[in-house]
């Protein structure tokens, strides 16, 4: 079946709607003027050069990378045994546990942020890097869990039986068969978790301190004060970074698989 002309017009409008704000931010970033404007005569890199004078943005970018990497790694490490148990063992409370692990998806990040702020201030660890990472582990855990669980459920239980029948003990079966087979799931779980962590603002606003601010939070607080070509330049770099990451993931794994699962159509 083909799309009619009306459908294609609608589609074009939809795509423009999706891309316009991001394209606009990138255009404004190249303005030669000192105020917000779309460059008409020439492109200038002056605002990108200005970023160098704001070490906060660079520090925040480093913090973001570190937090996202650490939180995603920890989340995947916790997710692997839990996903294997839920996918392959029958025990009471299995379904409930799965729902429990997915719960952070349902809880607004605002509520999580407030809860961690209160929790950390009582424990006396507010504003620490450790606190920030733990918060991010919670937020990204469901994503890591979902991907590892999909890999573990998709695995034929008989493959393990085959290894057992051929004389492999439990540990060998895990080392040689189970773990290698869920590594793609672990990798995609890490990727999805990393993206979620890197973009998280709402919860982080509550628990980040001046020294542990992530890039999106630093951008958010900057925008609350003023909107100028500088912040557009920072955003443009972030968009560029995201597009590059997206192309890499798409090349090696397929974004469609990451977000929709196996395409059955």
């Amino acid at each position: 079946m083909r799309n009619g002309p009306l459908a294609l017009v609608f589609h074009a409008a939809f795509v423009v709607f999706l891309l316009a704000p991001m394209v606009l931010v990138c255009l404004v970033a190249f303005t030669p003027e000192g105020f917000l404007s779309i460059p008409t005569t020439r492109f200038s890199l002056r605002w990108f050069e200005r970023i160098a004078q704001y070490p906060d943005f660079i520090a925040a970018f480093r913090t973001s990378l570190f937090v996202a990497t650490a939180a995603s790694l920890i989340a995947v490490l916790f997710a692997v045994p839990a996903a294997l148990a839920i996918a392959r063992y029958r025990f009471t409370g299995r379904e409930a546990l799965n729902a429990f692990f997915m719960a952070p998806l349902m809880i607004p990040h605002l509520v999580l942020g407030i809860a961690f702020l209160r929790f950390y201030s009582l424990l006396g660890i507010s504003g620490t890097m450790a606190g920030l990472i733990i918060g991010h582990v919670v937020v990204v855990f469901p994503f890591a869990m979902r991907m590892v669980l999909a890999a573990a459920t998709g695995m034929d239980k008989r493959i393990e039986d085959a290894a057992t029948a051929l004389g492999a003990d439990r540990i060998t079966t895990y080392r040689r068969i189970v773990i290698p087979l869920i590594i793609p799931g672990m990798a995609s779980g890490f990727a999805l978790a990393f993206i979620q962590s890197f973009d998280e603002v709402t919860m982080t606003v509550f628990i980040a301190s001046a020294t542990t601010t992530t890039l999106p939070v630093r951008m958010f607080t900057y925008i609350q004060d003023s909107i100028d070509p500088l912040i557009c330049a920072v955003s443009a770099l972030l968009i560029l970074f995201t597009v590059l990451a997206m192309l890499v993931i798409d090349r090696f794994y397929g974004l469609q698989r990451l977000f929709i699962g196996e395409d059955k159509s």
Partner: peptide, 30 residues
């Protein structure tokens, strides 16, 4: 199809702050 699905999914990966900044530019007085 694959390319436009990328276009739809892509914005999900871009920071909400950067996307909202774009709307602030579009919706503001100028």
């Amino acid at each position: 199809r694959s390319s436009f699905i990328l276009v739809v999914i892509g914005p999900l990966l871009v920071s909400v702050v950067a996307r909202t900044l774009g709307w602030a530019l579009l919706l503001g007085g100028n």
